[in-house]
């Protein structure tokens, strides 16, 4: 619970059934579903108000992970570079690809997948369970933990994205101004990542065998999504790609950075998927929010 500054208005908190009569029984308070949704929205608003706190937590997570190491968070960049270089050499030879064309593609795809999509989904699983101590000792909006995961991943992402940019520079593969078209894609990713934290964080707090399941699904997704291979390599089968939800989501950010505009179909599907996902997450979060402190 917030302890506001002395100048702020005192707060009033009520739980449970509103007393009969006109005292404070708003229409929303009478229907349990609406009431829990109203509380979930208040939770989200509270978390947005605490964005500085969420940023501090996310930044501390990254700093503490690398405390005591000489390179600090630069290790993220370095290990990413090593992985791209080794995978680029191996897969370039396996797929008989021209390294100057293949390596920029692989570097970008791997980075976007590992940090942007797969990484955040795996991190989302431990969103609430990692914050058990904080949740059980002080009332704080739950969504703060989701924001913290997003901030943490954004920092890691910023360290990683250097690698594909360096590869672009080496092979003179700059995409040009069209790269700016990836910005709205990144915004969609941030929203989806936040929704994933609320949904997967809650499910994984209740069922502890879900994180490994998510991990296995992502492992499969890594191979069926064009990350280390190009969509063109599928030939006629490429139309099937649209059945893979990760493909349009990846494409809205990757295509502009490779110098191409994603098609309307890709954008349409990415937006539709994101809307459904965010709505499902919000409803699920509203339903279980009050029970989260018992689950973590």
């Amino acid at each position: 619970m917030t302890v506001p500054a002395p100048g702020q208005a005192p707060q009033r908190r009520e739980a449970g059934v509103a007393p009969p009569g006109p005292s404070g029984a708003t229409p929303a308070a009478r229907v349990p579903g609406l009431r829990s949704m109203a509380r979930a929205m208040a939770d989200l608003r509270g978390a947005l108000g605490l964005w500085r706190f969420a940023c501090a937590l996310g930044w501390l997570d990254v700093r503490l992970r690398y405390r005591g190491s000489a390179l600090g968070p630069l290790w993220i960049t370095l290990s990413s570079a090593i992985m791209v270089a080794s995978m680029g050499l191996i897969y370039g030879r396996l797929f008989h690809q021209d390294l100057a064309r293949y390596l920029p593609f692989l570097a970008l795809s791997l980075t976007l997948w590992q940090v942007g999509l797969s990484g955040i989904l795996q991190d989302a699983c431990t969103c609430f369970t990692d914050a058990e101590g904080a949740i059980r000792s002080m009332r704080t909006p739950y969504a703060v933990q989701a924001l913290r995961v997003i901030v943490r991943n954004a920092i890691v992402f910023a360290h990683n994205i250097v690698v594909p940019f360096a590869v672009f520079a080496i092979f003179h593969a700059w995409p040009g101004v069209v790269a700016l078209a990836s910005v709205p894609g990144v915004v969609v990713w941030l929203l989806d990542g936040f929704a994933a934290c609320l949904l997967l964080g809650a499910i994984c707090a209740r069922f502890r065998d879900v994180p490994p399941i998510v991990g296995s699904v992502l492992q499969i997704a890594f191979y069926v999504t064009p990350i280390i291979w190009r969509p063109e390599q599928l030939g006629h089968g490429a139309s099937w790609l649209m059945l893979n939800p990760f493909y349009p989501l990846l494409e809205i950010v990757r295509a502009p950075l490779l110098g191409a505009m994603p098609g309307a179909v890709v954008w349409g599907e990415a937006l539709a998927l994101s809307c459904v996902f965010c709505a499902v997450s919000l409803v699920a979060f509203a339903r279980v929010r009050a029970r989260l402190s018992f689950w973590v």
Binding site: Q11, A15, G16, R136, S137, M138, A290
Partner: peptide, 22 residues
């Protein structure tokens, strides 16, 4: 402290709360 919530019955807390629980 508002950490545990229950919809069963009425709980009203008026004022800034701080809890020292652990």
């Amino acid at each position: 402290a508002g950490i545990y919530e229950s919809a069963d019955g009425l709980l009203q807390v008026q004022g800034h709360v701080h809890a020292l629980l652990d």
